[in-house]
Amino acid sequence: MINALFVAHTAAPSGAELATSRLLSALRAVPTDSAVEPSMIYTEDGPMVDTMRSRGIPTSVLANTFDSRSVTINGSGWLRRLTGTAALIRVGWDLGATVRERGADVLVAGSTKALIMCAIAAKRARVPLIWHVHDRISAEYFGTALAFAIRTLGKMVTDGYIANSRSTEDSLRPRRQRGVVAYPGLDFQQTADTEHAPQRPAAESVIAVVGRLTQWKGQDVFLRALARTQVRPLRIYLVGGTFFGEEAFRTELEDLASELQLPVTFTGHIDDPTDILSMADILVHCSVIAEPFGQVVVEGLRAGCAVIATRPGGPAETIESGVHGLLVDAGDIDQLTDALDRLIADRDLRIRLADAGRSRARRFDIADSAHTVASFLSDVVTRRRTTAVEKHSV
Rank of each mutant, 00 (worst) to 15 (best):
P47R: 05
Y141E: 00
A35E: 11
T194G: 13
L107M: 02
D334E: 02
V7F: 08
H132M: 10
L5N: 04
I351Q: 12
T387H: 11
D334M: 05
R102E: 12
A145M: 11
Q219N: 00
P201W: 14
A125F: 06
T20Y: 07
A35V: 06
G241H: 03
A114W: 03
V106Q: 01
L234D: 08
R347C: 10
V381E: 03
R175H: 14
V91F: 05
I366Y: 02
A316R: 01
T191Y: 15
L129H: 07
A29R: 15
T32G: 07
S165H: 00
V71L: 09
G84H: 00
R28G: 09
N64F: 13
R100E: 07
A86F: 12
V36R: 01
A119M: 07
A248T: 06
C118I: 01
L349Y: 11
R347M: 11
R173H: 14
H132Q: 11
K391Y: 08
M156C: 13
A16T: 00
T43P: 03
H196F: 10
G304I: 07
S205V: 01
G56F: 14
G314A: 08
G110Q: 14
M279Q: 14
W216H: 14
D105G: 09
L82P: 00
T158Q: 06
A290K: 03
R102G: 00
T168W: 05
I57V: 15
A356H: 13
V133T: 06
T32V: 10
A121R: 04
A139Y: 05
T152W: 15
L340K: 05
R176H: 13
R136M: 12
S21A: 15
Y42A: 04
A370S: 04
P292E: 12
T98L: 11
A87R: 15
R55I: 03
R173S: 12
A122W: 03
I137Q: 02
V389D: 04
R69T: 13
M117F: 09
A202F: 13
I120M: 15
P31R: 05
M279D: 08
Q189K: 11
S359M: 13
T372S: 07
A119R: 00
G77W: 06
R311S: 01
S25K: 11
P233Y: 07
V30Y: 04
L107F: 06
V108T: 06
G294C: 02
S393K: 12
G241P: 00
Y141V: 06
T387Q: 15
I276V: 13
A361H: 07
G211L: 06
R173E: 15
L260F: 04
E254W: 08
E204L: 14
L277Y: 05
M1P: 08
S258M: 11
S25M: 11
S60C: 07
M156N: 08
V394D: 10
F148M: 13
P315Q: 10
D341N: 15
T265K: 09
A12S: 11
F148H: 14
I116F: 12
A63M: 15
L115T: 04
E37H: 14
A147K: 01
I207W: 04
P174E: 09
V328I: 06
I276Y: 04
A257P: 03
R22S: 09
V323W: 02
V206A: 04
I351L: 07
P58G: 12
H132C: 01
L129M: 07
I289E: 01
R53E: 10
D220L: 03
A280C: 02
L262C: 01
D346F: 10
D355C: 11
S70D: 14
V328Y: 04
